[in-house]
Design a protein around this nucleic acid. Sequence first.
RNA 1: GCGGGCGUGAUGGAAUGGUAGACAUACCAGACUUAAAAUCUGUUGGGGCGUAGCCCCGUGUGGGUUCGAGUCCCACCGCCCGCACCA
Length: 882
Amino acid sequence: MRRAIRPAFSCHTGQQHMPSYTPSDIEARWQDAWDKAGIFQAKRDESRPKYYVLEMFPYPSGRIHMGHVRNYTLGDVVARYKMATGHNVLHPMGWDAFGMPAENAAMAIGGHPRDWTYNNIKDMRGQMKPLGLSIDWSREFATCDPEYYGQQQALFLDFLDAGLVHRKNAQVNWDPVDMTVLANEQVIDGKGWRSGAEVERRELTQWFFKISDMAGELKDALDGLDNWPAKVRLMQENWIGESRGLQFAFSLIGQPDDGAPAPDGFDRIEVYTTRPDTLAGASFVGISPDHPLAKTLERNSAEVAAFNAECRKGGTTAAEIETAEKLGFDTGLRVRHPFDTSWELPVYIANFILMDYGTGAIFGCPAHDERDLEFARKYDLPVTSTFAPTNTEGFTAPEDGGAAFVPGKDVTVHFVRPLGGDPRDMTGDAAIIEAIETCETNGVGQGVTKYRLRDWGLSRQRYWGCPIPVVHCDTCGVVPEKKENLPVELPYDVSFDTPGNPLDRHPTWRDCACPKCGAPAQRETDTMDTFVDSSWYFARFTAPRADTPTVAEDAAYWMNVDQYIGGVEHAILHLLYSRFFARAMQITGHLPASAIEPFDALFTQGMVTHAIYQTPGDNGRPVYHYPEAVELKGDKAFLKDGGAEVEIVPSAKMSKSKNNVVDPLNIISSFGADTARWFVLSDSPPERDVEWTASGAEAAYKHLSRVWNISHRITDMDADAAGEGDDDLLRAMHKCIHDVTVAIESFGFNAAIAKLYAFTATLQKSKAGHAAQRTAIMTLAQLMAPMTPHLAEAIWSHQGGAGLITLADWPQADEAMMVDDTVTLPIQINGKRRGEITVPADMSKEDVEKLALASQPVQKALDGGQPKKVIVVPGRIVNVVV
RNA sequence: GCGGGCGUGAUGGAAUGGUAGACAUACCAGACUUAAAAUCUGUUGGGGCGUAGCCCCGUGUGGGUUCGAGUCCCACCGCCCGCACCA
């Protein structure tokens, strides 16, 4: 039976006198030593290059998980490596502490969100400290600290002053039972995720950051983020959604059929299109049910009102949208085609037109748009192509019942009805440019660039968030709170026994004096989206106790974050919002212009996964078993209790519901933090998922024990002992220094660890003398120090190294020592390996060629003939073409 | 549908266009042991032959570029991720 390996507390074999590897002693001792020396407390020092490493700060759920261990270990390797290479490192940690789980906990189990949160923080800090991270805990803060959110309120007021925030009506998902606004992700199948109530679309007055004003800038600046994953840049680019098109107006000529009066102020309908080259194929004009014109018509017509209401009910999930039927309502209104005054088009209200994109109105060209074609066929509207394939063989035109013809814009097609000019072949791109020019020349509209990105709504009808520091006064309206009154602090005496926002029903909290006229007024009870909290914490870390949001000298010195590390799930919102905030903070004087892109380099790590063990359950649903309850035999698994065979489902994200969670605390208490750190780095490249396996963790522990044992073996050697192969060992050491350094620089931590395994094996087998072996083990400890800092310190001190290894300079690879005297060159014949020769490393190309040609496999292949060609790549390979 | 990425042993994964499978797991065998654990050593891509050795095939499939392709190009197949009624 397999047994988990535990640190042996005693060793009875009698053969070894060395103390065994006991991480619990070692790790506590060195964490204490680092603490006492205060080496991780960052101080401004203009004489050294600074380096700011940041991992995305955690939500204080109360328990760390393996994903945290991986995230912080990655950052710690970078931080410790940079420290060893002469950098002044800032490596802070804090808590993303506002948010719904705290309120949910208060509702579910009682208690107060604040107590729940601070208790969790205390617990999680206690769980993180044993990991031995090089964190400057003196800078720690939580976003729910009044000292933090008060400064956030100050930022908000400055943004408001600078015109970066505004208030407007917006459609929101309203949960009528919980009486709160829900984010889109919290609406599942049209129902509130908590209450299960049918979600309503309500119009509320909300606060918005004007991020859409910066859409173009945020998109263009992506090009400069060379050290971000291309994938993240692309996701942001798509999210911002830049498009180039034509905006123009149709003039209204008709009256509703029922003779109702023409709606006031609607003599024209503005539309936006990215395909102005299809204008000659226009068939109808469509407006959104939320378009001002539709809303005006709705007031005079019960029919329109009913139609619009029907449209608004529709769900927003992907499946619903895909299957939803295209619905239209003929308003009876008619518009004139801008290029042909005799051409009239009907105006429909249509359910598939979104109010918040473009102008909320379109012209339909059924020949070149699938939605428009479906709509036109349903309502019997004309279909007219403006272009067709250059080769029409086998092509059925949409007019003749074929599908809508929608080629890529870079495809050359034959334009039957171009907007200006004679029929001819051109690409869609060229035709669009020409169409915009034609329209602009004829005064029919302008080319415009639009963005999909919408303003960022920050109002939340919740308690546990940063209060929005404004006051509503009967005479003055919406008035910003005075800065000297900040922070607007959350009241503690609230209850969660009834739904809705506790701030709303608090007996006195709302009451205040108007900052402008002094009359009795009421505070805003909405709080800020928690994404606001995380949009500037990185800047706050540079001066976490300041009584202004930032301090110019500190921000100038520490910003930007040189390396940011976190999950790809934040690729869009958190990172985009932070980029917006950095710009807004620059405009309001809180960050230097050099920090408008706050993250120089971004690394997105993969998840920690684990196999799922399941057996069939009674009701057909699988029963999940904890890893501890399962025994592995080869590639099969059995229940320890009863021995039934267990199905092993391929690895998936650790999840409580699947019982495949491995608790870092258990691993640390069994094997130590160094083992956990080593393992999460070793098995997969950091950007990919890593599968946690018990055998892999054991192997990591065994390896660290081995290194420990080697160190003791070396100290037991006769100090004057000479040996064999000193040079070979040192050569391998210098190669290892080089390879590990290159690997760490490029985030190839798994590759670095592979090299360390290989060098450990070399050292273990080495017969070199004491001096060489001592040099080798101390260098090995240094190279391992970023990953397993406690073990590295223990070995360093055990070998008599000066000071802390954490403060020692990173070892330098000696190029001269990396060159072997001889090299073994593979010999290829016609590109296939057929043999090898060993030659002095400095042998000339010509001599290598001669030797190669004389070699047995080449002679055999030539069979007396002459080679056609011989390629010699010095130090690499010889290829003979016969 | 649109955009992007990835396909390498039983498994996780290595390979600046230059010896494919480093390193680790798993498996198997051996040493030590009364035995086990621990520790150490070794084997393991597939196939074949005249088996101390040698040969052939092999990085999803098919083609191409090159002296040489896992790597570059084209097409296809499969999987994964992001976005999606965005005019």
